[in-house]
Design a protein around this nucleic acid. Structure first.
Length: 581
RNA sequence: GGUCCCGUAGCUCAAUUGGAUAGAGCAUCUGCCUUCUAAGCAGAGGGUUGCAGGUUCGAGUCCUGCCGGGAUCGCCA
């Protein structure tokens, strides 16, 4: 139980004793620290329901909880706010025993937050869905779900046909086939070659109908598992996965499932047959579609296209088949799509289609967790200075080298080897990149400014790492000097440490909030707040030189607990923290 | 034209889902390094929450109508 939950219980009981709903007793942290540590606002809605004066109800509640041993002071303010201060003993207990919420008994949740196409370099567009999705996966896993991240790559479309035909036409199949997957350099060379070829092949096919025809034919042969297409495709896929693993790895973004559209190819025909037989799919303009209109739609709603009029399938079809596969293999209670907000219509169609056709039971929750577009400082979709699409690997490299520059300027990590410093620079750069992104609300568009992000001052990833490293350094010094850290019995919280102590207890409720709305940014807010409050404490209270043994050992304990909490959140955000810098 | 999203300090973003005096960072200004890492700390200035109504004890948040920006609207993904 969290401190908020226990307080809510106390006040919930009080409301219940007045024949009012328990929920009115819900307590929250106060946004007015000088007036209260916690507050309960239930008296006002209660007054509305009961037709009474809110202050009278508040008064009754206060009288009911007046002598509770955990509460130091309870008072009424304004129209009926109940302001709460807790006792030191109560706070001390919770500071030392922060339990993360248990929101599931191991239900399976599938998160879909990848989507890169094979044979194409990853670009900045993959950054946001990747890190938000990965963080949500970590959060859900932490609170008791069995969370599975699926990369769901695009590996089965006409773009494969175009690329393969290009190799065949230039008699360069061997470049693909002879590549040794164990040789990192060879893999990189082939990947670069594909990255260069694909846009050319694609452009040529768009202009020349004959080439397009060839590419389509090759794609069909691939889908029929014919050689040499199948082997070639497998090689291209393997090499691409290596590249994805590298990029995602640098960002600490992990997946449990490396599946792609190809994995569900064989499920499509039987699924479509069933849909036709049962009448869920109908013919329209030569295409097979699933109508998904509803009576309360204000405007006619476009159907999901199952088969195009030329017999080909669309991404809605593969997405449906993917849902079929996921239900068959993993029996999830939720599927969450962390994808670009601009696809909201597509997913609404998809969800309606699988519901009306009874592919998905009512008790399975399908969620479209759309993410906003990443724009440049001009407010338009993010581009490089030259106007092109920025590769993800280039962006990570820029963040790293900027971090290295700043480390040198600030005279940090100067006593280390160059290799160590490089590693720290990567950790700092990635922290900057991820935190800059994760702290924004998920669904809104946001402006991505590399210069601002790599400034490393204020509300940034590097600030967080800096605070954590400072604590580590302090604790090392304390250990060297043989100083004691307070144990449970001797630990006490003093006035100037109270704000920090209160924050240390707040993580469970923040986590619950992040899960409820799938919004990791509340965690960023929390961790920054904690780091800043610690920094203020650190500036105001000297620790190692404190002469009062009890005060010193208790402060060391607070340092320990703060570090623990910071590292817990870093883990959830997929941010690595160095030992020293 | 329909639908969806957005509009909060000079800039970039928050605001615990309807709560008290709308908070942070950057930028600007003032202090603080012979004591634990100054990527820091303490403080100041900066707001008609796009506009106009409505709902109620109470609105940045909900409703209606405007204005402005973006996305999207069947055979691409």
């Amino acid at each position: 139980m969290s401190i908020i939950e226990e307080l809510s219980d106390i006040f919930g009981e009080a409301f219940k004793s007045l024949d009012l709903p328990r929920e009115l007793g819900n307590v929250r942290t106060s946004d007015r620290p000088e007036m209260a540590e916690f507050q309960c606002n239930g008296a006002m809605p209660a007054a509305k329901q009961a037709g009474k004066n809110p202050r009278e109800i508040a008064q009754a509640i206060v009288e009911h909880v007046q002598d509770h041993p955990n509460l130091k002071d309870v008072s009424i303010a304004g129209p009926g706010f109940i302001n709460i201060f807790v006792t030191n003993e109560f706070l001390t207990k919770y500071v030392q025993d922060v339990q993360l919420p248990k929101l599931s008994e191991g239900e399976t949740v599938i998160l879909d937050y990848g989507g890169p196409n094979i044979a194409k370099p990853m670009h900045v567009g993959h950054l946001r869905t990747g890190i938000i999705g990965d963080t949500l996966r970590r959060i859900l896993d932490k609170v008791g779900f069995h969370a599975l991240g699926d990369v769901h790559m695009g590996d089965w479309g006409t773009h494969m046909g175009m690329l393969m035909m290009d190799y065949i036409r230039t008699s360069d199949e061997s470049i693909v086939m002879d590549c040794n997957l164990e040789d990192a350099d060879a893999v990189q060379t082939l990947f670069d070659d594909m990255a260069e070829r694909y846009p050319k092949a694609s452009g040529a096919a768009k202009e020349n109908p004959e080439l397009m025809q060839e590419a389509r034919a090759a794609t069909v042969k691939l889908q029929n598992k014919e050689e040499p297409f199948l082997s070639m495709w497998q090689k291209i896929r393997d090499v691409s996965i290596r590249a994805m693993e590298r990029n995602y790895g640098l960002l600490n973004v992990r997946f449990d499932l490396w599946k792609g559209e190809a994995d569900v190819h064989d499920l499509i025909a039987p699924m479509a047959e069933r849909l036709k037989q049962k009448g869920f799919a109908v013919q329209d303009d030569g295409a097979w579609v699933i109508p998904v209109e509803r009576n309360d739609d204000k405007k006619k709603y476009p159907p999901l296209i199952l088969y195009k009029s030329d017999g080909g399938v669309m991404y809605g079809t593969t997405d449906m088949a993917t849902i079929v596969e996921r239900i068959n293999l993993y029996d999830p209670s939720r599927i969450i799509y962390i994808v670009d907000q601009r696809q909201s219509l597509h997913f609404e169609q998809l969800f309606r289609a699988v519901r009306v056709s009874n592919i998905v039971r009512d008790d399975i929750e399908l969620t479209f967790a759309g993410v906003g577009t990443m724009n440049g400082t001009d407010g338009k979709p993010f581009k490089t200075r030259a106007g092109g699409v920025m590769r993800l690997s280039d962006m990570i490299e820029m963040a790293q080298s900027k971090a290295l520059e700043r480390l040198n300027e600030a005279h940090l990590a100067q006593d280390m080897s160059e290799e160590e410093r490089e590693k720290i620079a990567l950790q700092v750069g990635v922290a900057a990149l991820k935190f800059a992104d994760l702290q924004n609300q998920r669904h809104a568009d946001y402006i991505f400014d590399l210069d601002r992000m790599t400034n490393f001052e204020g509300k940034t990833g590097p600030y967080l790492l800096y605070q954590a490293v400072r604590i580590k350094s302090l604790l090392r010094k304390a250990a060297e000097q043989g100083l004691n850290i307070a144990d449970d019995a001797s630990f006490s919280i003093h006035e100037e440490e109270r704000a920090l102590a209160l924050l240390l207890t707040a993580l469970p409720d923040v986590l619950t909030l992040a899960v409820r709305n799938y919004t990791p940014h509340v965690l960023c807010d929390y961790v920054y707040n904690l780091a800043q409050t610690f920094s203020s404490f650190y500036g105001n209270c000297h620790i190692l030189s404190e002469e009062n043994e009890n005060v010193r050992s208790s402060r060391l304990k607070l340092c320990n607990l703060t570090l623990e909490r910071l590292e817990q959140v870093f883990e959830l955000l997929g941010i690595e923290c160095p030992e020293r810098m």
